[in-house]
């Protein structure tokens, strides 16, 4: 009797599904473990003072308020700079630009830019915004650096969402006497919006956690006050975490994990917002 006949089809299927299930668990496990360790060790540090007070005693006590505020500033600044620019560029590339050598080159450049390591963006931002444009290390310089890092991701995800809208939507729009822009605005964009929002918000969430681009452009070791203007340096969560994890001895471990927990929660919150917005628009424009 051949091996093939020894076990039934149903049993084989069970074994296969079981294997797939355990592989999924295996992939999930590290994520759960990381989250659990951070949560377990960090939750004891989190209280009202930790979230709203300035650091004290060389950051060994007090709170991380300035770092939270700094990260929020950077995220908002990067979003304001990159979102309109990225979406408009994607609309141009997907809906208006003709297929030729130049657009192929641009597309290639965008794909490659999204693969550039973030520390390179940091150095670029440093030499362009901090040194050449004389912004100094500041929230402006940091936001712009993060924005430039985000642009390729936003453009790519927006363009993919636009391309996912079937061509007949465009033909229908045009055939009903809509101009080209009206067609894009009313027959294409609404249906690409869920995808655009998901992609952009995820890229923004990523920016919130990046350390390298802000290292040379904005992040301060310690400032005893909140930034007064966008031309001030600021503290930021990822860099603050790096500092208290490596540069400052004798700090309670719960402070390190607590900071990591706050950062993770902020990113998760942004992802949650992305999911809610997406499902809301999906319901509205289902096809």
């Amino acid at each position: 009797m051949r091996w093939n006949n020894l076990i039934s089809v149903a049993a084989k299927e069970k074994i296969a599904f079981g294997a797939l299930f355990f592989i999924t668990l295996f992939i999930l496990a590290p994520v759960v473990v990381v989250l659990w360790i951070i949560f377990k060790n960090g939750i004891s540090a989190i209280n009202w003072e930790f979230l709203t007070a300035m650091p004290k005693e060389g950051m060994r006590a007090g709170g991380i308020f300035p770092a939270i505020v700094g990260t929020l500033y950077l995220v908002v600044g990067a979003t304001v700079c990159s979102l309109p620019l990225g979406i408009l560029a994607a609309i141009y590339l997907s809906e208006y630009a003709k297929e030729n050598a130049l657009t192929r080159l641009i597309n290639l450049a965008i794909v490659n830019l999204s693969g550039v390591p973030s520390v390179v963006y940091g150095l670029f931002g440093f030499s362009l915004f901090v040194v050449f444009l004389k912004f100094g290390a500041s929230i402006v310089a940091g936001s712009l650096t993060l924005a430039i890092m985000n642009l390729p991701v936003i453009i790519t995800s927006t363009r993919e969402s636009l391309k996912a809208v079937p061509d007949y939507f465009r033909e229908v729009g045009l055939s009903l006497g809509a101009s080209r822009w009206q067609t894009v605005r009313h027959a294409v964009l609404p249906f690409a919006l869920p995808g655009i929002l998901t992609g952009t918000i995820l890229s923004i969430a990523r920016a919130a956690g990046e350390t390298a681009p802000i290292l040379f452009t904005v992040a301060a070791f310690y400032i005893p006050h909140l930034p007064h203007s966008v031309f001030d340096q600021a503290m930021a969560l990822p860099y603050h975490l790096y500092i208290i994890a490596t540069q400052i001895p004798n700090i309670p471990n719960s402070y390190r994990y607590g900071t990591a927990l706050v950062l993770i929660l902020m990113v998760l919150l942004m992802n949650l917002v992305a999911i809610i917005i997406r499902s809301k628009f999906r319901r509205k424009y289902k096809w």
Partner: peptide, 18 residues
Amino acid sequence: EGLRRRVGMIFALPMPLP
């Protein structure tokens, strides 16, 4: 767009927008 307002079109497959 001015022309297409005077010359409408029905496509091969029914294509309502969602």
